[in-house]
Design a binder for these strands. Structure first.
Length: 573
RNA sequence: CGGGGUGUGGCGCAGUACGGUAGCGCGCAUGCUUUGGGAGCAUGAUGUCGGAGGUUCAAAUCCUCUCACCCCGACCA
């Protein structure tokens, strides 16, 4: 491709709309433009990146036995009403009406569509297993789109759905997708970590996320990982053993009320009473699907709302506001406790809070706390369940070694859906004994537009992008320094033809621009290999070969360029 | 939805406390010179100052309402 005939509107200045480096680079490099909040144009370079990545995904999915289909982004509301998600998915879903006033929606994901396709069509276990996938646009009317392609309202996703006759078969299907995912990300030059995750509103039993670890502020997920045995999980799901090493009191003491003027927060109470936060149990009030609940965790731990939501089976969960706290406890925020709440509400208690003997809790009275409170004697838990977020220093639930917490960007996910959708939408088949069973399903996503941007959080330097070779829009950029020099133009053209004939994707910067402009643009757009053609080296029949990632440069004879490029590409990520 | 912020040529910004009819850099166009890391000179084009009302002799600037976008939070791949 010739730059002069292409469209690469690079920008010199940082764009005020972009916070993340990856977002900034896509804008400045002429890869994307914004149409509306969370809605983007993919310019020619980005389209090529999307195509490259999609083709890797397609290739590996096909190898894994998945079959490509296309399901409409439109879907009638009643299909989603059957699964119950029409109600639970909420405003995140884009609703619309057609001209007949039928309720329609733009699919935020395609479990319902895929299942309804199968329902009524697949009748025998002989037709299973089945794995259907598509690479399609999705719409989610995000509360707050941000970070460019990382969280858009429209985005492209590869989504696959498996249908199996039994658990054993499903396990093979699931593993097949996990293996395909590793292969896909490896080919794209990305190291990913598979972690256990919450199933969210997808339903089902278990799920995994594929995370690209980053050390920039783009990390949207926290992962607890054991470097010793390999256990890894999203902190919203992670099991752990407490790493604080606190020992419970052996002697049980009498409850005692105490004035704590001005001490409402954990910090204030610990300072006032001169006790460690591990001696406190905090009572957090939430409203779950409209009803107040109390969640108790040890003073030094953070509650993870996803864990609480899961424990409650709630669709909606939010922190109670001051009015509700007052109404439930009879005291301002900061003095809630499990003993003598004004209203009967469920008490969910974290096991680490249960383990604290003679703990300090709020007294449900302004500026008062209670000392030496003990569960069972002084209050009863409705449910004892893990609510604490895993943190660095906690111990691995598998092997007991110390865990670390890392930042990651989710680039793929896999869900064990069970029979939720197949039952709701009637995707049933007759087994060998003639019994009717619902298909066992899985669903598997990869963010096609998000992943390349996420990759840029890792692969860049102060000058611009450094693409992994297999998702770069072109492998090579040819930079003739002076197009007016016929010798340079001719040499550049010859190399361009040679490389193109060899099946290599080449971009030639044939613009009449100064060398500095070309070099800076080349560094910005980040193609893996740069060939510089200038008077000095051309005199000796040579061109300069350099990778974007390194400052090393080699002189190569004109006739050896194809081979040199191929050899160099082998060595690149 | 709550909190904070920004809207001025294509891009980045100044001008707004104190109203007087719009400016800088980059980019763009043309010409000449230049050509190994974002060139120089000359000439030129491009703005109903986000929108609507209002105050005033006069509004980018003051007032009211509105819209869009960004950041923090809730939500989420």
């Amino acid at each position: 491709m010739r730059w002069s005939k292409y469209y690469i509107p690079t920008l010199r200045d940082d764009q005020s709309e972009a916070e993340l480096i990856s977002h900034q680079l896509l804008l400045r490099g002429g890869y994307i433009r914004k149409l509306a909040s969370g809605v983007y144009f993919y310019l020619p370079l980005m389209q090529r990146v999307i195509d490259k990545f999609s083709n890797i995904v397609r290739d590996e999915m096909n190898k894994a036995g998945a079959l490509e289909v296309t399901m409409s982004v439109l879907c009638p509301a009643e299909v989603w009403e059957k699964s119950g998600r029409y109600q639970t998915y909420g405003p995140l879903m884009m609703h619309l009406k057609d001209r007949h006033q039928h309720d329609m929606l733009l699919c935020p994901t395609h479990e319902e569509s895929a299942t309804s396709l199968i329902a009524g069509e697949v009748r025998s276990y002989r037709q299973l297993p089945l794995n259907l996938y598509q690479i399609q646009v999705k719409f989610r009317d995000e509360i707050r789109p941000r970070f460019g392609l990382m969280r858009g309202r429209e985005f492209i996703m590869k989504d696959a759905y498996t249908f199996d006759a039994d658990e054993e078969s499903f396990a093979r299907s699931y593993q097949g997708m996990v293996d395909a995912y590793y292969a896909i990300f490896k080919r794209a030059g990305l190291d990913v970590l598979k972690v256990e995750s919450d199933t969210g509103n997808m339903g089902g039993k278990r799920a995994h996320e594929f995370m690209l670890l980053v050390d920039t502020n783009a990390g949207e997920e926290k992962i607890a990982a054991c470097e010793s045995c390999g256990y890894a999980a999203n902190v919203e799901k992670s099991k752990f053993k407490d790493g604080s090493g606190v020992k419970p009191d052996s002697e049980i003491k009498e409850m005692e009320s105490i004035d704590t003027p001005g001490a409402a927060t954990i910090e204030e109470v610990t300072a006032f009473l001169k006790v460690d936060a591990t001696r406190l149990v905090k009572t957090l009030l939430f409203v779950a699907d409209g009803k107040p609940v109390a969640a108790l965790v040890r003073g030094d731990r953070d509650l993870n709302e996803i864990k609480l939501k899961r424990a409650l089976g709630a669709v909606e969960l939010e922190m109670a506001d001051a009015d509700i706290v007052n109404q439930v406890t009879g005291a301002p925020v900061g003095f809630a406790g499990p003993v003598g709440l004004r209203q009967e509400i469920p008490l969910l208690v974290d096991p680490l809070a249960v383990a604290v003997k003679n703990c300090v809790v709020g007294a449900n009275e302004n500026e008062k706390h209670i000392l030496n409170v003990n569960i069972d004697r002084d209050f009863k838990a409705t449910q004892v369940v893990d609510l604490s977020e895993a943190r660095a220093g906690d111990l691995c639930p598998e092997c007991g070694e110390v865990m670390v917490v890392k930042d990651g960007i989710e680039v793929g996910n896999t869900f064990m859906l069970g029979t939720k959708y197949s039952e709701a939408l009637g995707a049933k088949f007759l087994d060998a004994e003639g019994n009717e069973n619902p298909c066992i399903m899985g669903s598997y996503g990869i963010g096609i537009t998000r992943t390349p941007q996420a990759a840029l959080e890792r692969f860049h330097d102060e000058k611009g992008i450094i693409w992994p070779k297999n998702i770069a829009p072109f492998l090579v950029e040819i930079v003739p320094l002076k197009m007016e020099d016929p010798a340079q133009a001719e040499a550049a053209e010859k190399i361009y033809q040679d490389l193109t004939s060899a099946g290599i994707d080449v971009l030639i910067d044939d613009r009449d621009e100064r060398p500095g402009v070309k070099f800076n643009d080349a560094d910005l757009i980040g193609l893996p290999i740069r060939l510089t053609i200038g008077a000095k080296s051309l005199k000796n029949g040579k061109v300069e070969v350099k990778t974007r990632a390194s400052s090393d440069m080699n002189l190569v004879a004109l006739e050896d360029v194809v081979e040199a490029v191929q050899g160099l590409a082998e060595t690149l990520n």
